[in-house]
Design a protein around this nucleic acid. Sequence first.
DNA 1: CTGAATCCCTGCCGATACTG
DNA 2: CAGTATCGGCAGGGATTCAG
Lengths: 132, 132
Amino acid sequence: MTHRTVGHQAGLPDDPRAHVTAPTPECPVEITLAALHGRWTTLVVRELLRGDRSYSELRAALPALSDKVLSDRLAQLGEAGVVERDRRPGWPPRVRYALTPRGRRLGPVLQALWDWGADTPPGTTGPGAAVR
Amino acid sequence: MTHRTVGHQAGLPDDPRAHVTAPTPECPVEITLAALHGRWTTLVVRELLRGDRSYSELRAALPALSDKVLSDRLAQLGEAGVVERDRRPGWPPRVRYALTPRGRRLGPVLQALWDWGADTPPGTTGPGAAVR
DNA sequence: CTGAATCCCTGCCGATACTG
DNA sequence: CAGTATCGGCAGGGATTCAG
């Protein structure tokens, strides 16, 4: 076979969830897409892959990201078990955001997304191939 | 190292696109997410990973998917260079849909999405962890 | 400093009907 | 068989304002 990751059991072959006929939330692919769903989400995860961050550090790293969406994303990633909030006592309020072990395992996922998107210099096979 | 695909250069370390501060379409991750964007898209790709299909075979495999969305998805995947249309002459019209080589390379991407979503039995770390 | 609440606008997608 | 045209409901997300 051409591609088989090392000690990695492939889930697709005989798992019943590989045969769903609708985008059900039980499908593992949907679970991951739900965790990464929405604009800015992958960028927040990327930022946290580099180390834990405070709320304002995240805002500084992603200046065009609004408060609403940032807190939405952090809540969403918290629900998904990807991000952990560490609220420290004292004043002013200090909160640190960090990836959980599960969240760190998103590294290979983002890498796979990166690799596929990077392996085609714009204009080789894509949309504007013959256009100019 | 724990995980490193064989002869695969990692793009993240020093590529300037790894430092974008907004969801720009030039980011490889965004390119991939754009190709897979929208409901049903991954299921259409999965179906085509199993072999080429006609329009009605796709409808039969995904009964709850409407005509509008199916043709939207096929057009979107065509634009992304993932799917190829093979229109055969004669009557009645016969059209076959198949993945391009680029489209077949989505296999590992879907596998990565699957693996992450599958490795947590619901209720271990996720949302309803303590709920029941 | 760290967010939550509200408002409004836009784009997605589902249903239905129609065409080559 | 293989689609397109049109419409409407709903959720996503940006700007702004308010709160702990």
